[in-house]
């Protein structure tokens, strides 16, 4: 079963249109939504949670239409971390824990306490005195403590230092060790997504540029460097996108279409993202 199924989703604002968007998150997998700030990631996530009106299309979450009356209760199964943590500033961790305990039917206090301790969160500090990193950690602790089956994470790792980020990514990996569990994670930091995702969807100016299985994508594509003349000799179908450099050309190419012996480098997700976005700006579409 797909944990998330989005078909033809659209929503227009003055000056920005999202979609039409088609997206699948197979159960047991991690789907990364990569895109610059303002690409429509947070809008997509709010649409999934049905806290934003959609103009068209359909969204099924854990098999249920998100406009169904039962969706409110289904939110017990969804752990959400928003790009900024949203608790009134005078609350302390204790108050927030009490709110969660009273709100979720399967709140796991022991798990929450364990995470709070692991993250070293202060118990009696007011939320407004939390650093951005601490706010994010608290939100993550909440999302992981009510026995959710689906995590929806909007820039969940953005405010964290690299060491903590790695620790949190491990927590997410642990979460999907159960094959009933899935994660949708959005980020503008593609290195985080590269580390953790099974699938990647690339969002740019409200449109999906591509969705792909991450490892296959990075294995099928390669970076090639050479002169402009050498580029001419390459088969057209081998070239996905090209960038002019001061002393030559770098191209994103399809490994299988390249001649044997060509010097190829394995791309990072970041490379693929930048190449495709820049190519998009030139009007041609890569993959």
């Amino acid at each position: 079963m797909n944990a998330l199924e989005i078909r033809g989703l659209t929503r227009s604002f003055p000056g920005f249109t999202l979609g039409p968007l088609d997206l699948n998150l197979p159960g047991g997998c991690i789907l990364g939504l990569v895109g610059q700030n303002g690409a429509g990631k947070s809008t997509t996530i709010r649409l999934i949670l049905n806290s934003l009106r959609r103009d068209g299309g359909s969204i099924r979450v854990l098999g249920l239409d998100n406009q169904d009356a039962a969706f409110t209760q289904l939110k017990n199964d969804i752990g959400v971390v928003l790009d900024t943590a949203n608790f009134p500033e005078t609350l302390t961790l204790k108050h927030i824990a009490a709110l969660m305990r009273g709100s979720y039917t399967r709140w796991d206090e022991a798990r929450f306490n364990e995470l709070v301790q692991r993250f070293g969160l202060p118990e009696n500090k007011k939320f407004r005195d939390f650093s951005r990193g601490m706010q994010q950690k608290l939100a993550i602790a909440c999302a992981l403590s009510h026995q959710a089956r689906l995590l929806i994470l909007d820039e969940a790792t953005a405010g964290l230092d690299p060491l903590v980020r790695d620790e949190i990514l491990d927590l997410f990996r642990e979460f999907v060790a159960d094959e009933e569990h899935s994660i949708l994670i959005s980020s503008h930091i593609s290195s985080d997504l590269e580390k953790i995702c099974d699938y990647i969807a690339c969002l740019h100016q409200g449109k999906l540029l591509f969705t792909a299985e991450k490892d296959a994508l990075l294995e099928d594509l390669a970076l090639w460097q050479g002169s402009a003349e050498q580029l001419e000799e390459l088969a057209d179908e081998a070239i996905v996108a090209v960038q002019q450099q001061p002393y030559g050309v770098t191209a994103l190419v399809k490994r299988a279409e390249m001649p044997a012996g060509a010097q190829l480098e394995k791309p990072r997700l970041d490379d693929v993202f930048l190449f495709v976005v820049k190519q998009q700006g030139k009007g041609a579409c890569g993959k």
Partner: peptide, 14 residues
């Protein structure tokens, strides 16, 4: 598959 993927920190699909 899932525990190996987790321990190697790689994709389940791979």
């Amino acid at each position: 598959i899932r525990s190996l993927a987790r321990d190697l920190r790689i994709s389940v699909i791979t």
